[in-house]
Computed example of a mutant assay.
Amino acid sequence: MTHQNLALRGSQSARGLSLVGQAFRRALVSQLHPRMLVALLLPFVIAVMGAVVLLWFFWAPLTGWLDQEATSWGMFNTVDGWLVAVGLFSLKLWLVPLMAAGLLLPLAGILGLGIAAVFVMPLVLQHLEKRDYPGLSRQGQHATVLGVWNAVWVGLLFCLGWIFTMPLWLMPPMALVLPIFWWAFALNRMLRVDAMIEHASPAERRLLWRRHNRQLWLIAGILALVNLVPLFWLVMPVFSALVYAHFCLDAIGRLRAETVIDMPSR
């Protein structure tokens, strides 16, 4: 690879990072607007209600099933017996409830994210369209249907992936890597669609997803890391929607500005 190509790729990477940082800065400013502060309530209330329902109906059967399954884990029982024998604590007493919470609470979280993607994102786009991106025409089609379908399949895949990869949490450092990966997957696959489907045409969406794939995944990775801090759970659905909306609307505007109309020569 020539020095010119390396310099070009370095310049593009720096430009991509600059655009990601710009999206986060703009999202922070937009989040402080009273309308966006009110928008925080819907996904938060839905997530809390979902958590209460899941814990109410599934906590006892899930912990019972996990406790029964734990009896067949040879190494687990050996360590648990050793800890009890030396007078420390029973590993099973805290690990089983922790695993149950690790299964149920993320399901409530993905429900809140889905609500934000389908119902809050249109409010976010309408708000930003008036204040930050006036004149950006809407060229999307079937936005509601596409948004709902995308939220359903991404949410379902997230739940299945989360559940079936949980045994890998016992292998360091998977207990940290897997949650970040699955939340990044859900955020990126859900919000990049909803942030574009109202304004971008299908051709524009495909082009922008290819062009900005790395930046979109970087945004998702940063948000997934922040999502590990419980204090931020209240604002994450709406703030994530704002970051993706700013990045994607700006990308649509820049793409359309690239179009050059050739004037006929006289």
Score class of each variant (00 low, 15 high):
residue 19 L to F: 06
residue 19 L to W: 05
residue 27 A to E: 01
residue 28 L to A: 14
residue 30 S to G: 04
residue 32 L to R: 15
residue 35 R to S: 10
residue 37 L to W: 05
residue 40 L to G: 02
residue 45 V to S: 04
residue 46 I to Q: 00
residue 49 M to S: 13
residue 51 A to Y: 00
residue 52 V to L: 13
residue 55 L to Q: 05
residue 57 F to H: 12
residue 58 F to W: 10
residue 58 F to H: 09
residue 62 L to N: 05
residue 64 G to N: 12
residue 66 L to I: 09
residue 67 D to G: 14
residue 72 S to E: 07
residue 73 W to F: 05
residue 74 G to K: 12
residue 75 M to P: 01
residue 76 F to C: 01
residue 78 T to W: 08
residue 79 V to F: 09
residue 82 W to D: 07
residue 86 V to A: 00
residue 87 G to F: 07
residue 90 S to Y: 02
residue 91 L to C: 12
residue 96 V to G: 02
residue 98 L to T: 12
residue 98 L to F: 10
residue 107 L to A: 15
residue 111 L to H: 13
residue 113 L to W: 01
residue 114 G to W: 02
residue 115 I to E: 04
residue 119 F to P: 11
residue 122 P to F: 13
residue 132 D to W: 03
residue 135 G to K: 06
residue 137 S to W: 06
residue 141 Q to K: 14
residue 142 H to W: 03
residue 142 H to F: 01
residue 143 A to P: 04
residue 146 L to F: 03
residue 149 W to A: 14
residue 157 L to D: 04
residue 158 F to C: 02
residue 159 C to M: 15
residue 168 L to H: 04
residue 168 L to D: 08
residue 177 V to S: 09
residue 177 V to L: 15
residue 181 F to Y: 06
residue 184 A to R: 03
residue 189 R to W: 03
residue 191 L to P: 00
residue 201 S to N: 04
residue 201 S to L: 08
residue 209 W to S: 05
residue 211 R to V: 10
residue 212 H to K: 08
residue 212 H to G: 05
residue 217 W to N: 11
residue 228 L to T: 14
residue 229 V to E: 08
residue 230 P to M: 02
residue 232 F to N: 08
residue 236 M to V: 13
residue 239 F to L: 15
residue 239 F to H: 10
residue 240 S to F: 00
residue 252 I to D: 04
residue 257 A to T: 10
residue 259 T to C: 00
residue 259 T to Q: 12
residue 260 V to L: 11
residue 263 M to I: 10
